[in-house]
Structure formats: structure tokens, C-alpha cells
Amino acid sequence: MPKSVCFVPTKKMAGNAARGLELRAEYGRGGTHVGVARAKQLIAREPLEPKDIKSMYSYFARHAVDKQGRFWADPGRPSAGYIAWLLWGGDEGKAWVDAKRKMLE
């Protein structure tokens, strides 16, 4: 596959990222400046390049363990890991990136 191929994030990924930014603002935690930048990219539904797919794949692989946290998606006090996960597109983002990465192999 040529390196010039780009992939447009889904509306659901954009919605998850927007929700992540809302929760981050409300609770003052979750994600880094890199995660916030990724969220803004997903919300804008900017085309992602292969390097972005690889970066997102690596993020999800490293942070899947966060899902075992005590307050993962607790509506009253979501964990920082949950908020960060949303910034990167949430479960839909992980599934989408997994599929796109396979296309790149």
C-alpha cells in the first residue's frame, strides 16, 4: 500500500474524542498534550496517515490494561485512563485502527 494512503476517522471516533475532551475539562485529568492533539484531529475528521495509524495502534496496545481500573467508565468519576482512551477514539477507535493496521501490513 502506498505511503500516501490516508484514512478518515469515523463519526463515532470523533464523538468519543469530543466526549473525552469534555470529561477532561470537567474532571481536570486524563490524557496528555499528545492525546488532546489526537482528539482534535479525530474531531476534525482529518485524514490520518500510516504513521498515525501505527501511533494509535501502539497507544491502544500500551493502555489496554487501563480498562481494568476501578473507575474505568464510572459516570460520576471516570478514570484518567478512560478519559484518555476516549481522546484516542475509544473502543471504536481501537477496532478501526486494528483493521487499518492490518491493511498496512
Results as ranks from 00 to 15, higher is better:
residue 9 P to M: 13
residue 9 P to Q: 02
residue 11 K to I: 09
residue 11 K to V: 13
residue 11 K to T: 10
residue 11 K to E: 14
residue 12 K to Q: 13
residue 14 A to D: 04
residue 15 G to D: 12
residue 15 G to T: 00
residue 15 G to V: 04
residue 16 N to I: 01
residue 16 N to Y: 09
residue 18 A to L: 15
residue 19 R to A: 14
residue 19 R to S: 12
residue 19 R to H: 13
residue 20 G to F: 02
residue 21 L to P: 05
residue 22 E to A: 07
residue 23 L to E: 07
residue 25 A to P: 06
residue 25 A to C: 10
residue 25 A to E: 10
residue 28 G to L: 04
residue 28 G to P: 06
residue 28 G to R: 06
residue 29 R to S: 13
residue 30 G to K: 05
residue 31 G to S: 03
residue 32 T to D: 09
residue 33 H to T: 09
residue 34 V to P: 05
residue 35 G to N: 03
residue 36 V to L: 07
residue 37 A to K: 11
residue 38 R to M: 14
residue 40 K to Q: 14
residue 41 Q to V: 11
residue 41 Q to A: 06
residue 41 Q to K: 15
residue 42 L to P: 04
residue 43 I to T: 03
residue 43 I to N: 02
residue 43 I to A: 04
residue 45 R to G: 06
residue 45 R to H: 11
residue 46 E to C: 02
residue 46 E to V: 09
residue 46 E to A: 15
residue 46 E to Y: 08
residue 47 P to T: 03
residue 48 L to K: 06
residue 49 E to M: 12
residue 49 E to I: 04
residue 51 K to Y: 06
residue 51 K to A: 15
residue 51 K to F: 08
residue 55 S to G: 12
residue 56 M to N: 13
residue 56 M to F: 07
residue 56 M to H: 02
residue 58 S to K: 15
residue 59 Y to V: 05
residue 59 Y to A: 11
residue 60 F to W: 02
residue 61 A to E: 15
residue 61 A to N: 10
residue 65 V to W: 12
residue 67 K to G: 07
residue 69 G to R: 14
residue 71 F to A: 10
residue 71 F to Q: 08
residue 72 W to R: 07
residue 73 A to Y: 07
residue 73 A to M: 09
residue 73 A to N: 15
residue 73 A to H: 12
residue 75 P to T: 01
residue 75 P to C: 00
residue 76 G to H: 12
residue 76 G to Y: 09
residue 76 G to A: 12
residue 76 G to L: 11
residue 76 G to V: 08
residue 76 G to E: 11
residue 78 P to W: 00
residue 78 P to D: 00
residue 79 S to Q: 03
residue 80 A to C: 05
residue 80 A to G: 15
residue 81 G to N: 08
residue 81 G to L: 00
residue 84 A to M: 13
residue 84 A to C: 12
residue 86 L to P: 10
residue 88 W to G: 00
residue 88 W to N: 14
residue 89 G to C: 06
residue 90 G to M: 01
residue 90 G to W: 05
residue 90 G to I: 10
residue 91 D to S: 03
residue 91 D to P: 05
residue 92 E to P: 00
residue 92 E to A: 14
residue 93 G to I: 10
residue 93 G to W: 12
residue 93 G to S: 13
residue 96 W to M: 06
residue 96 W to E: 05
residue 97 V to G: 07
residue 97 V to Y: 12
residue 98 D to A: 13
residue 100 K to Q: 14
residue 101 R to V: 04
residue 102 K to D: 14
